[in-house]
Design a protein around this nucleic acid. Structure first.
Length: 455
DNA sequence: ATGTAC
């Protein structure tokens, strides 16, 4: 190991820590150019090469880029919309969830009503959420409330294969499957009145959370470039304890090729969440008294990406390539790139719960800038494999149990409900409590689910 | 996560 590994855990969460995830954190610490430490957030679990819930930063001189440090779902992320109504003025949750389910394409391999041409896909990959807004799928304000303005620099579509494009063309504006969801929630508790007001949240407000990523396109980009970077690791004589850590120097053509395709995929994911937002607005503004523009984007975060950022290392400002895989940026007050109105508050951090459990809004901190390259957790973290979860339930029992709590679940199959059982995940509240107590991000509001759409 | 397999 070139640097130490560091875990942020509570006593309860340390009991769920997998040996495989510890091993992976140690493996990452052996990689060239890694700076300070290999980090694990409290929702850490075993993943492909790097652990999910891991953060690793690499210097520009010897550092590397690794697809395993980003994940297969490039720019998997979360966005939160706020409606201009509270729980008291809101009824018919079942009907609205059903309408949303019929409007937002959901599930593995499902296709969008919007068919992008090859040229449009190029523009989506270059312009991100901005493409969607400029083509009528949103408002100018939406862009300001996206991390990086919903577009990462450096996208080069030359490095996105034909196969990846073909998978991506019919899928822009679709939700996907697995842990991805669309949820109607209410603001149940406010912990920080000042920050909540700045973000645009009030108690009992109705919100909609969207959790999804780059679908088949990002997955294909990851698959394609992993193969190239496995060869590059050998070419550049990088000794790795695990082939899944395939990487290339940041300065190498192979490394740059992946970075440019990763940026293109990230931009596609931002356009995807933006188009879904448009579909949601169209359904919701059928309700009397709600206009399209009244549905505000609170924020949009990515939790699977590598980015060039400036951080202080040994008292000096340095550009680093920060890999966040299942980890959320949590920039503190005064950090670059925040919307002007949130400069004094810090970045909104969105932490989705597992199905039927609360989600949280937090704010980024100075402590995160000092300790974790401005990063925090991303969610609940799986503790039971999909096959284990399917053995313990057929899904219908979970659906009923949640209905008993007043949560209406609509899914493409009972199988996905079984796989996504709350029991298969760590507690989002415990994960959030841990990052809050560590000061990596501070609680602003708690969101309780009312209706859930699952792919 | 994923045209759940190449």
């Amino acid at each position: 190991m070139r640097v130490p590994g560091k875990f942020y855990l509570s006593e309860t969460l340390s009991e769920t820590l997998e040996e495989g995830a510890v091993r992976q954190l140690a493996n990452v610490a052996t990689m060239p150019g890694i700076v300070r430490y290999s980090l694990a957030m409290p929702d850490v679990h075993w993943g492909y090469g790097f652990p999910i819930g891991g953060v690793a930063a690499f210097n520009m001189e010897e550092g590397v880029i690794s697809p395993g440090g980003v994940g297969f779902d490039i720019n998997c992320g979360v966005r939160l919309l706020a409606l201009p109504i509270t729980k008291d003025d809101f009824s018919g949750i079942k009907g609205i969830i059903n309408q949303l389910f019929d409007t937002v394409p959901t599930g593995v391999g499902n296709k969008s009503a919007l068919r992008l041409s090859e040229k449009e896909l190029e523009d989506v990959m270059t312009e991100g959420a901005g493409w969607a807004v400029n083509n009528g799928y949103g408002t100018k304000d939406d862009i300001i409330r996206c991390e990086d303005g919903g577009c990462i620099d450096g996208a080069d579509t030359e490095h996105v294969s034909r196969k990846a494009r073909q998978r991506g063309m019919p899928q822009c504006g679709t939700l996907g499957s697995g842990n991805h969801f669309l949820e109607i929630q209410s603001v149940d508790e406010i912990f920080d009145d000042g920050a909540a007001e700045k973000f645009g949240l009030v108690r009992d407000q109705i919100c909609i959370m969207i959790h999804c990523g780059s679908r088949g396109l990002g997955h294909q980009v990851c698959t394609d470039h992993l193969k190239d970077l496995e060869a590059a690791s050998k070419k550049y004589n990088i000794k790795l304890p695990d082939n899944q850590l395939a990487c290339a120097p940041l300065k190498s053509p192979e490394g740059k090729a992946y970075l440019s395709a990763m940026a293109a995929s990230a931009n596609y994911a931002w356009a995807n969440r933006q188009i879904i937002t448009h579909l949601v607005r169209e359904v919701i503004c059928k309700k009397p008294g709600i206009e399209y523009d009244d549905i505000k984007l609170i924020y949009d975060v990515t939790h699977n990406v590598a980015k060039f950022e400036e951080h202080i290392v040994d008292g000096k400002k340095q550009t680093l390539c920060v890999h966040r895989k299942g980890a959320t940026r949590a920039f503190g007050p005064g950090s670059p790139g925040l919307p002007p109105e949130l400069d004094s508050t810090g970045q909104p951090v969105l932490i989705p719960g597992s199905m039927g459990t609360p989600s949280y809004v937090l704010k980024g901190t100075e402590k995160a800038m000092e300790c974790t390259f401005g990063s925090t957790c991303h969610g609940s973290g799986r503790i039971m494999s999909r096959s284990q979860a399917k053995k313990s339930s057929d899904g219908s029992d979970i659906k009923e149990e949640l209905a008993g709590k007043g949560i209406y679940v609509r899914a493409t199959s009972n199988k996905v409900i079984a796989e996504e059982s709350p029991q298969a995940y760590k507690s989002s509240s415990e994960v959030v409590r841990t990052v809050h107590n560590a000061g990596l991000s501070l609680k602003v509001a708690k969101l309780t689910p009312m209706g859930v759409i699952k792919g």
